[in-house]
Simulated assay, not measured.
Amino acid sequence: MRAMSLRPKPARLFVAALALAGLTGATVMDPANPTCPLEPNWSAYPEMKLTVEKRGNMKVMLAEGRVDAGLPDRLTAALKANPDVSEIWLRSPGGDARAGNAAGRIIRSNFGLGTRIPSGWACFSACNFVFMGGQPRMIEPGGLFIVHMFTRTGDRGAIDMSVAMGTDATRELIGDIEQDSALLASEDNDFLIRMGISRKLLTDIMYRQSAVATEENKSTRRCLTLDEALKYGVTYAPE
């Protein structure tokens, strides 16, 4: 009779780790993206929701959900209706990159309007550029500024359609993606300079992530440490 192995199976170890985290309050980290938690708190709203609330002695705007194409217009209207807002608090999984850049510029045009990632909240992808518009910018201990390599290859519908149409259509789409990606990289670089952030954030961190997970490198996200955020000028010294 075959002897039973006493070695715990990986799946059981993972379940046990989740159970232990639940008991201890420890954060479960993402095996594919080891610098980040498995489930970042970045909100599930399909369009970014803007809510103005009183927090202590100041009025803040909670910006939660996906960065959508209509955000810049809604943000402009919300700030016009609430000129006494002091800070924008962000919790977002990202979304439309150019809308994120535009929202960041709108925030910067409102002199002295700060941005904040509160403790336990996460700001990913296009949300990064919304956050960068703040002056000042604050990441609380426990707040997450999560970056990745920007890409348009996630548009599966356009890719599948071009493949169905044949080689010429696919080649044209690939050319469009390459051209647009290069243009977006140039826009990101210009945006960082205008916001007073080191361009090395792009070269040292963002563009070193995999655009698409592979067998060799499954990591597509990178959570900045507070020291890194300070080093690249993303945030200022904690209060």
Rank of each mutant, 00 (worst) to 15 (best):
E216I: 09
S92P: 03
V130Y: 01
I139N: 06
V147P: 00
R194W: 01
G100A: 10
K9L: 04
R91Y: 04
P8V: 01
I205K: 12
L183I: 07
K200L: 13
K218E: 07
T170E: 09
S5Y: 08
L79E: 07
S210D: 13
A19G: 11
R108S: 11
G65T: 12
D96W: 01
L23G: 11
T235P: 01
P72R: 03
E215G: 12
M48P: 02
P31H: 08
P141Y: 11
R55E: 15
R221H: 07
P34L: 06
A126C: 04
P141T: 07
M165L: 14
G134S: 02
A102M: 04
I146S: 05
M161P: 00
C223P: 03
G70Y: 08
G56M: 12
E187M: 07
D84H: 05
V130G: 01
D160H: 03
L13F: 08
T51K: 13
A158M: 05
R208K: 15
N57D: 15
W42M: 06
H148Q: 09
F129V: 01
F131R: 03
G100I: 05
G196F: 09
P31F: 10
Q179H: 11
T220N: 06
R152C: 00
A11Y: 07
F124A: 14
M61G: 08
P10A: 03
A3D: 09
K9V: 02
I205P: 02
N41P: 03
M161C: 00
N41T: 06
N189H: 14
M132E: 00
G157F: 04
L75F: 10
V28N: 09
L79S: 06
I193W: 03
V163H: 00
C127L: 07
P40D: 00
Q209F: 03
T235N: 02
G112Q: 13
N217V: 11
S186V: 02
R2V: 10
